[in-house]
Each structure stands twice: as structure tokens, then as C-alpha cells.
Design a protein around this nucleic acid. Structure first.
Length: 313
DNA sequence: ATTTGTGTTGAG
DNA sequence: TCAACACAAATG
């Protein structure tokens, strides 16, 4: 259901057939459809009648990628590798221009020349949405005039249905956890530079710490589950830390020294909440205690480990 | 009967 | 690359 096929016109088309090619993820199939241009007196000169009827000269559009249609409507098109990609027809010029802009952003990236002011034609969220879809999908949305809906729905997904899609996340930083980060200290040391750069409040080193509370921050994990940690600054060690709630996270995720925790931020228009994910260094390696537990179960045929075994993932 | 969008050309 | 123009293919 991911693959759409769009028709493209062959540039040096000697063949009279319309080439249909699949737009995959990123690439438009290259068609080297070359042959000698048809020569020879193909047709006579039967082309006079039309000239006499002064069709109101179709005025060209002031927008890039927009072309007038005979019926007064507007078409949008963009070129890719010598081939035209038709983006559909629209009632008004602006809608067509908008379609071109969207396509240009998807095909040529952030720096693409568009019709809208260079400043803000696309939010970070929209850019992410675009990149998360194939060119064919975007073109299809444009032609069906469903782009705006899909975009909104896509951005919703991040704020509503729990798991924020990968494309709606912006990585802030990662840290390989140390033994003490996953030990009994119930705290994660957040690299100072990263903390000051990415985490909410410029946590006052005396104020907030003096009161000893810091701030509570919510983090969504890969499964959409929300974790709440206390984030504060410890004067004693001159470091930023995540404390309350951290040990439970470590336990539930089975974090071990050397594993990595990644912090990112939702890129959706509104609430740019924080996200946390962990990358286990050795995927299939059972936890230290797991082996013993498994043996016990096997030996005695009793699920004595059932209660104690922490949930995986 | 209309509309879409492809074939095609020539300018930049 | 890009749009103008003509008109065949696609649609209702």
C-alpha cells in the first residue's frame, strides 16, 4: 500500500507511450528513454482553424510551479530529473502554489525555493512529516487535496495517541550510563553542557537546590509510557541529576552500565514534551540475574522467579 | 461535456 | 529547469 505509481512524461520522448514509473522512497526511477526524434514529414499543416478563435489569453501565474488550465483553474507541477511531476489541479492560484511549495520542500529540502516567504513556510513538524513520507505519497496527497488533513492528523498523533512517531522527534543528546547511574544511588548524572542546553529551566544553582526540590519533568518512552523524574542540581557535586523516579526506570528497562539513554524532544507544533529511550548495548544478553532465575525455574518446575523477574523492555 | 494532465517545444 | 501551448486521455 506504500507504493503509488505516477505517470511521467518522457522528456526526450520519441516513443509515443506514456511511461509509468514507481516513485520509491527517495528516488525517481531514471528513464533513459532515448531514441532518434521522429523525423520525416509526419503531418501536413492542418492547424489553422483554431487561430481564428481568440481564446482569452491564459495569463501565466505569478507563482512558481503553477500553470494555468484551459478551464480557468490552476495546475501545479514540479520537475525532477528532466521529468515533470504533476501535482494536480486547483481552483485557485494560491492553492496550487501551496502544493508546489510542499512538493519542493519534499523534493529539494529545506532550502528549496518556494512561493512563500523564505522565513516560515514550514514548521519543524511539517518538515519532519514530509521526510517521513515518500515523494510518491506526498504527491498523491497533493493531487487528492488531502495533504492538509494528513499533515494535521500526523501531527496530532504525537500529542494524542501515545507513541510519538520517530519522525516527530528531535534528538537532543545521548549518554552512556555509568555504573553509578544504574546503581543504588537512584540518580542519573546529566552532562552539564547538555542539561544547560536542552533541559527546561536554567535550574538555579542556589535557589532551586537550596529548597532541595528542583523540578519534575515528564518523559515519554518508546512505548508511549510517561515517566516523571525529579530534575535538580546538586551543589555538592556541581552536577545536574535526575533523581526521584529514576531507579524505577532503570529497573523496568533493565538498564546496565554501558547502555545508552537518549533524550529527545517532540517536534509537534504544540507541546514539545521530552522523550527518553534506552538502547541496550547487547540486545539478547539476559540480565545477570535472569540466568539464575531461569535455572531455578527449570530445576524445580516452579515459577518462583515469576514475581521477581522485572518486565523486559 | 468537461477536466485533467501528458506530449512537446523553446527559452533561460 | 521551467512554463507555454495544444490536445489526447480520463472522468462524470
Amino acid at each position: 500500500m506504500e507504493q503509488e505509481s505516477l505517470a511521467f512524461s518522457s522528456h526526450s520522448g520519441a516513443s509515443t507511450s506514456t511511461a509509468t514509473v514507481d516513485l520509491e522512497q527517495e528516488d525517481l526511477a531514471a528513464m533513459e528513454n532515448d531514441s532518434s526524434p521522429e523525423l520525416g514529414g509526419d503531418d501536413d499543416g492542418v492547424q489553422r482553424a483554431a487561430e481564428l478563435l481568440p481564446m482569452p489569453p491564459r495569463q501565466s501565474s505569478r507563482y512558481k510551479g503553477v500553470v494555468p488550465q484551459p478551464n480557468g483553474r490552476w495546475g501545479a507541477q514540479i520537475y525532477e530529473r528532466h521529468a515533470r511531476v504533476w501535482l494536480g489541479t486547483f481552483a485557485d492560484e494560491e492553492a496550487a502554489a501551496r502544493a508546489y511549495d510542499v512538493a519542493a520542500l519534499r523534493f529539494r529540502g529545506r532550502e528549496a525555493v518556494t512561493n512563500r516567504a523564505v522565513a516560515e513556510g514550514a514548521s519543524t513538524g511539517e518538515l519532519a512529516f514530509l521526510v517521513a513520507h515518500s515523494k510518491a505519497e506526498i504527491v498523491d496527497m497533493l493531487r487528492k487535496h488531502t495533504y492538509d488533513d494528513e499533515l494535521q492528523q500526523g501531527l496530532r498523533r504525537g500529542a494524542r495517541a501515545q507513541p510519538t512517531p520517530p519522525w516527530a522527534r528531535e534528538l537532543l543528546f545521548e549518554k552512556a550510563v555509568t555504573p553509578s547511574d544504574v546503581g543504588k544511588l537512584n540518580r542519573l548524572v546529566v552532562p552539564k553542557q547538555q542539561a544547560e542546553k536542552h533541559f527546561p529551566f536554567p535550574l538555579r544553582r542556589s535557589t532551586d537546590e537550596a529548597t532541595g526540590k528542583g523540578v519534575l519533568l515528564n518523559f515519554e518512552d518508546g512505548d508511549g509510557k510517561v515517566w516523571r523524574f525529579r530534575y535538580s542540581y546538586w551543589n555538592s557535586s556541581q552536577s545536574y541529576v535526575l533523581t526521584k523516579g529514576w531507579s524505577r526506570f532503570v529497573r523496568e528497562k533493565g538498564l546496565r552500565p554501558g547502555d545508552t539513554v537518549a533524550f529527545s524532544r517532540s517536534v509537534c507544533g504544540t507541546d514539545k514534551h521530552l522523550l527518553i529511550d534506552c538502547k541496550k548495548m547487547h540486545r539478547n544478553m539476559p540480565e545477570p540475574g535472569a540466568i539464575a532465575a531461569a535455572r531455578v525455574v527449570k530445576l524445580f518446575g516452579v515459577d518462583i522467579a515469576g514475581e521477581k523477574r522485572p518486565p523486559q523492555r
